[in-house]
Nucleic acid binder design. Structure first.
Lengths: 139, 139
DNA sequence: CGCTATTATTTGATGACTCAACTACCATAG
DNA sequence: CTATGGTAGTTGAGTCATCAAATAATAGCG
């Protein structure tokens, strides 16, 4: 994880959480998520998400949209610039994953590892896809 | 990791790094290590270690000793109280590891996991010993 | 010996997170 | 309608790490 963070930061000025935020938003319906759901996905507190999105909004990678049905909620929305950034950063991300994991394990072993980790509580995080030929949400 | 931290903190007022520090010191020759070697083991910067040890010294779990041969180095030394604390905390640690990992995998699978992780760069951290019946440095 | 580079450590500033407290809103039961 | 309780989000204070710079000592080369 450390190395992913470093490379993303160096090459795209993104933290690992910045990247994951863009990734989750890009996969969500209409590129939008409630901040609180984002918090859960990222394993952050709502407070942490507020500050994280402060940064992403400031550089125009995400925006906000009010919910017409519930005035409490604000949606975070990925922007066109955000999607573009995600496409670039995904290459870096995939490359580092491959370098860190994929290149050290055969496809079979990778799947084994994924299975074992998936069996652990909270182990649903490990995304084996992105560790070899996988392009995580490059679309 | 999150859960380990929480339980150690709740039951012994120790952070995960506090615990690991005591563990490494207890295993070292004379219960002493140079601060910089400790930094490497803990994957912290020297700066981080300074602040971490500030806390442990304040509550008397570690002490410091000058190196007679090199005035630049200070050894961090585990105290008797530190060893006692480590014995207690190790039980908690082992219990949480078992709960989190050991109880979800068979011994064979645990070893498989350990092997796979060990093959990864920096994967020498995972200590399969402590995840089932293992008592990590309870001596 | 004297200079330079390297090593061990500490300090100050900063960043990213947490928690606790607060605001604002929604839902429901009377 | 109104009080009660739960949910979404922000803010302020504190924690734990980092980096960059400063200090002090050592090592080795001329």
């Amino acid at each position: 994880m450390r190395a992913v963070e470093a490379r993303l930061r160096a090459e795209h000025r993104l933290s690992a959480n910045d990247f994951e935020t863009l990734l989750h938003l890009s996969r969500a319906e209409h590129g939008a998520m409630r901040r609180i759901d984002l918090a859960e996905r990222l394993r952050l507190t709502p407070s942490g998400v507020t500050r994280l999105l402060d940064g992403l909004e400031e550089v125009g990678l995400t925006g906000r949209r009010d919910c017409p049905a519930d005035a409490r909620v604000t949606y975070s929305v990925i922007t066109a610039r955000g999607r573009k950034m995600l496409r670039l950063a995904s290459c870096t991300h995939a490359a580092v994953c491959e370098e860190l994991i994929g290149s050290h394990l055969s496809p079979t072993e990778l799947e084994e590892l994924s299975d074992l980790l998936g069996r652990l509580p909270g182990g649903d995080d490990f995304d084996a896809e992105c560790c070899s030929a996988g392009t995580a949400a490059t679309g």
